[in-house]
Amino acid sequence: MQRFLPTFLLVIALIAAWQLLHLAIGAGALTSPWMTLTHLISMMGTVELWANVGETAKAFAYAMSLALVGGIVLGVLLGVNRLAGAVAEPILLNLYAIPKVTLYPLVLLCFGLGLSSKVAFGVMHGMIPILLFTMNAIRQMRPVYLRTAGTLRLTPVQSLFHVLLPAILPEIVAGVRLGFALTLLGVLIGEMFASQRGLGYMAVNAMGLGDIPTIMAVALLLTVIAVTCNSLMLMLDKKLQHR
């Protein structure tokens, strides 16, 4: 734990900066860290918050599963077939760089208001990074692994599950880490525009009402969840690199 002390001090410094900013611009513009925390705790006593958390979690679970399966399957296919990969890569990078939020009217027209739009938004954001990481991991995999699989007379299915996927697992975890963050972002954006439920909707609703304490509380909650999940995946990442 000793080595996390400097990081901890840095976080304290950031919270202090938040407090100073609050003092500089006033409580109406930015609630203090303590006020935000107490507001969040009081919100946690309400059914409303948990219903919204549940909605977001549900949409996120669907979107993440789709992004994960789609990203890995397509990534493996495009990684194994070099020509297809070379053809697709610039297109995928381009899609990654598009501000996808502007496409929301289209998504809304295709999927309508509600869960499926949110899921579609999440998949749109999260699948491409997982796909790109998987594809590049396979391209950069040492060829000797597949040659070994060949000399041990493995079937293609055995090679896939016992050589290919274990070999690229660390890169898949790195891709999933990025994909996780972007899927969550996508789902939240979907909720902000295409839904009447979920944490994204809560935030956008509070924006409309000028309810800064609620915005800050939701933002704090999301930050804590996102950073926790990210840290867990980072730890898994480190563990896989060490072997």
Binding site: R147, T151, P166, L169, R243
Partner: peptide
């Protein structure tokens, strides 16, 4: 069947 190959590169599986 019956042929074994040892490569020059390190082909041990790190996982």
């Amino acid at each position: 069947d019956g042929v074994g190959v040892v490569f020059q590169e390190d082909a041990s599986f790190p996982w």
